[in-house]
């Protein structure tokens, strides 16, 4: 798989990162060499092998859907860069 500048720009957009143009080339080379290196996985016979998502798969317990640690709005908002009356403030999203 050969990466190009457009793919890098698209990935950056998906990840909400804005790479300066002068860094795109280096990142492209780094990612390309990593992708070339992981190509070796193609030689493994994985027919009939199920993906392993977690080594503890199947043990996840269920719990009741209820609030266990409520009333912490002030504590949580303390880390917000900007907040008003308990709400996070962001630039206007609706015109």
């Amino acid at each position: 798989m050969a990466l190009d500048q457009r793919t890098i720009q698209n990935l950056s957009w998906l990840a909400r990162l804005k790479l300066p143009v002068e860094r795109e080339g280096k990142i492209l080379n780094d990612l390309q060499s990593i992708l070339d290196w992981v190509e070796q996985l193609k030689e493994v016979n994985i027919e009939g092998v199920e993906p392993l998502i977690s080594v503890t798969e199947g043990i996840a317990p269920m719990r009741e859907d209820k609030v266990t640690e409520g009333d912490q709005q002030a504590d949580l908002m303390a880390n917000a860069p900007e907040s008003v009356q308990g709400f996070y403030v962001v630039p206007k999203v609706v015109e």
């Binding site: 950056s12 990162l17 392993l52």
Partner: peptide, 28 residues
């Protein structure tokens, strides 16, 4: 940044099975 972009790539449409699912199968 490098790892976020690589992760975004292997999870993106068209490459998910070829990279991410394949890696999980070899993991097994």
């Amino acid at each position: 940044v490098r790892r976020i972009l690589l992760g975004t790539f292997v999870l993106s449409a068209g490459f998910y099975d070829a990279y991410y699912t394949r890696a999980q199968r070899v993991r097994r």
